[in-house]
Design a protein around this nucleic acid. Structure first.
Lengths: 238, 238
DNA sequence: CGGCATAACGAACACCGTTCGCGAAGGAGA
DNA sequence: TCTCCTTCGCGAACGGTGTTCGTTATGCCG
């Protein structure tokens, strides 16, 4: 005996919309989700659209192009960064903490650092607010205005660059095995020419043994030391 | 009276080759030429092949893939950088000059900086030789070994990052007019919210007025000042 | 209800990197 | 010189990309 399903729908005051409703926020959210799981290359318009159950052309009613999508994504993420209240007594520690938070965010979304590097003038509300926060901390340290601004510039670039490199290592074509193999090849190449590589042969291992955090913080610490040594007003307590 | 052309060819000891002969050097040269005139995006396998009067598939007998082509290009360029004889008395000046030369090279070929950032382990002969040269200068300054190696790391990244940003500004989608327009929008946005942007509003112009060279050298100088202040042995002459 | 504006969408365009299979070319050996 | 083998050069094709154009569907307003 066959049972035929009964498709009786309840009467509705309004027919259900047949089209999917999109929004810029939804698109950015979806793209960020994809980015968190993959890389910038996996965030194609087609993939984002597919995740949303539609086609890529539908996205263009909400974002002008892929580049704008990237910038929206970056701004969203910048909005998540902590913005401390500036403290003149511990401004360098604050800068270090902010840089760490930035690096962590940038590396959690592989490829977003590249967007940061490629975005000539970050103009989103969060980017501006975050820039204001960094600048406020730098100025709290008593640095001359021009120095504070250029330091902000340098620190931003340092974080983005470092994250870019880490991101490339994480998502690029060169896996850990190949990196190790390359290291061996390089070692053998140089060992066969010891007079050409007196420094690299003895010290090359230092770099491969350093952790990303060590490398990042070295650059940061030395830069901040230079800032303090050259530009920060003297304090009687020191 | 019709004159029929006579196609009498001279006898040859060997028939003329009908195929174009390619080589890795030729492909790299061609790609670099395209890069010097455009950007990394314009250096497609199809374009390189077209310049060589063939099809993209022909390139794969000489380069494994596009990534390898990129690395070969980078190594070629690194081979053009000057490698000074280390001088303990002026090592910081030497580092600055090397950084300037690197930046100049990287910005002459828009996009190659990105290759530098994306190449996890630069393994070409020129990359190794150049690294050796930088490291030798840093060590000539009397820096501890680990510091010299990490400084080399930092300086490389700084140059590549800065060049990347300059390259993006030069070849990206955001032209000078749009950059200026954005600056205006940002200014207006912040001016409408003065209590939110007390620092940016007064100082934002400093950044837009600074030249790329000023920005680059600021980061470099401060970093070197930090290196010298923290790690270089004291000299009686100072 | 009809008109209008806008969002959603499919088809198509022009590009991309790469692989596969075939033919051409060159070198080595008999 | 001829034959065999290897490698290079190449076209076709695959699976992908961002974007535009024209059409349809939807919602809002008068």
């Amino acid at each position: 005996m066959e049972v035929v399903g009964v498709e009786a729908g309840w009467p509705r005051s309004r027919p259900v919309a047949q089209r999917r409703v999109l929004s810029q926020d939804l698109i950015v959210d979806t793209a960020l989700e994809l980015l968190g799981k993959g890389s910038l290359d996996t965030v194609s318009m087609r993939r984002v659209a597919h995740e949303l159950g539609t086609g890529p052309a539908s996205l263009y009613a909400h974002v002008s192009n892929k580049e704008e999508l990237h910038e929206l994504m970056l701004d969203r993420l910048l909005g998540r960064l902590p913005r401390p209240e500036p403290d003149p007594g511990s401004w360098t520690e604050q800068i270090v903490e902010m840089a760490r938070a930035q690096l962590k965010m940038l590396t959690s979304y592989p490829g977003i650092a590249r967007v940061g590097l490629e975005t000539i003038v970050p103009a989103g509300p969060n980017a501006l607010a975050y820039g204001e926060a960094v600048l406020a901390v730098l100025r709290a340290g008593g640095l001359p205005d021009r120095v504070a601004v250029l330091a902000f510039d340098t620190l931003s670039l340092w974080c983005a660059a470092f994250a870019f490199e880490l991101g490339a290592a994480k998502t690029g074509e060169t896996g850990p095995d190949e990196i190790a193999a390359r290291g061996k090849e390089i070692g053998a190449y140089m060992a066969a020419r010891p007079t050409q590589f007196p420094n690299m042969l003895g010290l090359g291992h230092i770099l491969s043994e350093a952790t990303p955090e060590e490398r990042f913080e070295f650059g940061l610490d030395v830069f901040l030391a230079g800032l303090v040594g050259a530009f920060q007003p003297r304090r009687n307590s020191m």
